[in-house]
Amino acid sequence: MKTDETQLKRASDAALTSLLNLTILPVIGFIALLLIYRKTRPGDIDRYHALLGIQINIIAAAVLFLVSTLMILLGGFDSPWTWVYVITYFTLVHTVFIVFALWALVRAWSGDKLKQA
């Protein structure tokens, strides 16, 4: 099925809100992403990118906050080593998610899935 302009626009918006949630608009970006998801239909490219965005952000939240919290709980708030691990880990992994979301945005702009079938 050929992707129409509205779907393409919505796919781009979904990818953009996913990126915004990961960068300068956490939570607000995710709510906007959920709103976009509600407008999509199964099988369409906009649904694909909205879903991908939701997945990226949920995994990012889990990987970043849960693991960081675990590190703090296990390592202790007052231990310098805890902060060595938490800050380094958070910065690197967060950036990896941002770069991934950037690639998803570029794919959404061209109406493509991450991997072409």
């Binding site: 902060w83 060595v84 800050i87 380094t88 690197l92």
Partner: peptide
Amino acid sequence: MVFITLFLTGAGILQVYLQRYS
């Protein structure tokens, strides 16, 4: 280079904590 950066970051955070924050 990523590892050089990570190791220096680790060294830097520990340095800040021990030398300036503690």
